[in-house]
Amino acid sequence: MESAIFVTRTSRLHHWNPTYSRLYYGQEFCERLVPSEADLITVSEFVSQNRVNSFTFVTPFVTEKGYEKLTGLVPLLDELFPGCEVAINDWGVFSYFMEHGGHPVVLGRLLTKQKRGPRILNLTDKIPEAALDHFKMAAVDSPIMTSFLRQNSVGRVELDNLLFGIKREKQDLAASLYYPYGYISTTRICLFSSWGKRHPRAIAACAKECREKQVRLTHRSMPVPLILKGNAIFYEKKELPEDLESLNIDRLVYQPEVPAG
């Protein structure tokens, strides 16, 4: 079992320790937080100094502007981290890296399509087994998608540790499992950035307030507390599935903090 740690900021590299064999670094949810060239250089130096064996660069969904910013980083990525793995959360970025080559691509958790809404926990005895099984599976594990990904040399998918369990088959692609935070939803209409603006639906300019603020959301119909950080909502689940091998999960990705902001 490979053990990885995922940090979203250079200031959080201190969470690394040698028990991990892989470092994930980057952003899934916000193009405004795509690392700068200076950040990549800092991470590269950290990787050399700390003998980090393996590195995964995590990329978010992107608008045209974000696409330019992200692909503008790739020459430096090629130079500093030749052949590193890239986790993709946007089909446009997927297509770019397919053409660019040189980096193994893994399908990020925004594209692997697990339904994660916690309220399913309130329904486990009220819906048929087929429906519950459906929610334990990821759309990306359908044979037609697995075959498509294999044809495109994608050998790994990134999954969340679902509150209501995971169902996979041995022939599915190898998977990484993120813990203890699972993402539920994300937006560009960030409540932190629209604070004080006239329009609650504004995709407003921001001062990266998300980096400092994190709140818990509770409601009597929600079986677990939700965590709102920046433009994304998460749940927390610490217990891992018992038989990871039978689920073809061969990598655990630990998030020391909620991975937004």
Partner: peptide
Amino acid sequence: CTVFNVRAARFFHQ
């Protein structure tokens, strides 16, 4: 399909 960029549109077109 979350098409926020041209390249994503081209992907789905393909």
